[in-house]
Design a protein around this nucleic acid. Structure first.
Length: 551
RNA sequence: GGCCCCAUCGUCUAGCCUGGUCCAGGACACCUCCCUUUCAAGGAGGACACAUGGGUUCGAAUCCCAUUGGGGUCACCA
């Protein structure tokens, strides 16, 4: 690793729209690890130079997600004790006067100029170029065709104008610590806009000015920005700034190679709805009016709460896209960080499980891979399972409780503390996420007289062979009725002895009928746990009802 | 389409810079068997990759070129 004499400063500079995407989270993680591992600073800056996008509320979501992941910033927006700093403000929309100084300098030196083409005019030119299969490049000939007086007159008349940068007609070489060196031929980078008609800087301009002013030494960002570096470099040169060191990170995709997008959730829902040929929403899921409008217009998306409700009603799982989605799904932040790191970087050798402390001390640009990664959720899931299993019981219970209070309040409310505790104990070793327990144990919260039995399970487990499941159930009902010690141990001893005498100790043939009677289906925690969690009264009620309705 | 970048199992990747120790290692997924009260988990096995074609070299996954394939980018979005 090269030694950098200066103090290292990295920054994560998201636009404030929406939540933190996993790709963005990885960028933030790498920026953070790189700086913190070298005694440097990590800056968070909000790139809100697009007035069409909302700002405040959205950036809060971001900030929470970062903190949840354990990524704290040394400088940036102030939030819960983080941020602040002398080089603020850290919202670009609040830095307009700063940018203006540099615009003025560029105009004065002739390195930038006003341009008056309207968006429509430019669109037409672009369309023409596209029709000829040629790339459109703004060369400045339009602006140069007019005299200084004409230009000034137009400006004075109030005609909307942008400022464009006069890109020097030379090749631009980008040095990248990850990709190596690339030279963009002269003429490829055109006279791009640096100030929009509304007076706001464009991304390119704001980034360059702020990176300089905030002392950013290393720019780590997604590969989609690679070509932008050319623009940033010419701007830095024109402004007399130093060039930061660049590192462009490989992109993260869906397993099918498509770009990860919030629309993926909608896709899953639309597919499920289409398969079922539904024209109205499932009961208690989404407002019929909203549902109808959504169904009609494929360009609209259901909002998060509606999506979650509909997915739940349809029994489909929404793909996680944002950090918050993974949180909701019950992933551990440290596992997400670990796994995210592995997409695009590896410490070498066979090591792949590590924490963020390790990442800090080992992350380097040399080991960042150049190829895009497909995000493999099943491996993430395996990592999460492993972390959960390796966790002390108490910690697991505590984490599940916190998760449940936030995402499954109704579930929690229907269980007594000891019931919930037992459920946690029974679920610990089989939980892949903090959410599993809530999704797979619906039978616990169903009222005894509302439990429904899966017809397939009934046919398979309760009926058929002789003696049938129902026969066993009848026998066990009596045994359980007389059972004094309704603990896992007590239940085990009475039921095992029944199994010994009735089915030669083959617990499976008696546990399954019991399970179906109690839960409605063939899957539940171990049967003795299930009985204990439900309690004697509920258990007996369910068995009786099951017997009554299937005999 | 122009420009830029990339190329190892299905996936994430190690190895490549400093050619031989690689008939390519790990992990997840997959398959088989075992264990088992369901589902998981666990145990033991297994299948699976150096994109192709040319060079260079005694020798190439490793170096060079071409082809093919993939990605990015061409906004008054970031």
């Amino acid at each position: 690793m090269k030694q950098h004499p200066e103090n290292i400063v990295t920054r994560f500079a998201p636009s404030p729209s929406g939540h933190l995407h996993v790709g963005g989270a990885r960028t933030a993680l790498f920026c953070w690890a790189f700086a913190k591992g070298r005694g440097g600073k990590f800056v968070l800056r909000i790139e809100d130079t697009d007035q069409k996008r909302s700002s405040d509320a959205a950036s809060i979501g971001f900030v929470k997600d970062l903190l949840w992941l354990g990524i704290a910033w040394d400088e940036g927006p102030e939030y819960e004790g983080h941020g602040g700093g002398a080089r603020g403000p850290y919202f670009q929309a609040q830095r307009l006067p700063i940018y203006q100084r540099y615009f003025d300098a560029l105009i004065a030196s002739g390195k930038a100029y006003y341009a008056f083409e309207s968006t429509d005019e430019l669109a037409t030119l672009r369309d023409q170029a596209k029709a000829q299969n040629k790339p459109f490049r703004y060369t400045g000939e339009f602006a140069r065709a007019m005299t200084k007086e004409q230009g000034d007159a137009l400006l004075a008349s109030g005609k909307p104008a942008v400022i464009r940068f006069h890109t020097p007609p030379e090749p631009i070489t980008i040095h990248d610590e990850i990709l190596g060196e690339a030279t963009i031929p002269a003429g490829e980078t055109d006279d791009f806009v640096i100030r929009k008609a509304d007076g706001f800087p464009t991304y390119h301009f704001a980034v360059v000015v702020d990176d300089e002013l905030m002392g950013v030494t290393h720019v780590l960002r997604a590969q989609e920005h690679f070509n932008n570096s050319a623009k940033h470099i010419v701007l830095q040169d024109a402004l007399g700034f130093r060039r930061p060191i660049y590192g462009h990170l490989p992109l993260i995709f869906n397993p099918d190679g498509s770009k990860m997008s919030k629309r993926d959730k909608d896709k899953v829902l639309r597919k499920a709805v289409a398969e079922r040929a539904m024209t109205s929403p499932p009961a208690d899921s989404v407002d019929p009016g909203i549902f109808g409008a959504w169904l009609k217009d494929k360009n609209t998306q259901l909002d998060l709460s509606a999506s979650v409700a509909l997915a739940h009603a349809l029994g489909v799982v929404l793909p996680e896209i944002n950090v918050d989605d993974f949180r909701r799904s019950g992933y551990l932040p440290e596992v997400l960080c670990n796994f995210l790191s592995l997409n695009g970087w590896s410490p070498g050798g066979d090591l792949e499980k590590f924490d963020t402390e390790f990442l800090q001390s080992h992350f380097d640009l040399e080991r960042v891979v150049k190829t895009p990664a497909k995000f493999d959720r099943s491996k993430l899931l395996a990592f999460n399972l492993h972390a959960l299993k390796g966790m002390p019981r108490e910690e697991f219970v505590q984490k599940v409780t916190v998760h449940g209070k936030v995402y499954h309040a109704e579930f929690m409310a229907r269980l007594t503390e000891s019931q919930f505790r037992s459920l946690c104990d029974a679920s610990h070793e089989r939980s892949k996420t903090l959410d599993d327990l809530f999704r797979t144990n619906g039978f616990v919260t169903v009222a005894d007289d509302l439990l429904e039995w899966d017809p397939k399970a009934v046919t398979k487990v309760l009926q058929g062979s002789v003696p049938s499941g129902l026969d066993h159930l009848r026998a066990m009902e009596a045994i359980l009725h007389d059972c004094e010690d309704w603990s896992v141990g007590g239940l085990e001893s009475v039921l095992k002895s029944y199994a010994d005498q009735s089915v030669a100790g083959n617990l499976g043939s008696i546990a399954q009928p019991l399970r179906v009677a109690l839960c409605g289906g063939v899957v539940s925690p171990p049967i003795f746990d299930t009985l204990a969690i439900l309690g004697k009264t509920s258990s007996l009620k369910r068995i009786a009802r099951c017997l009554a309705s299937h005999s």
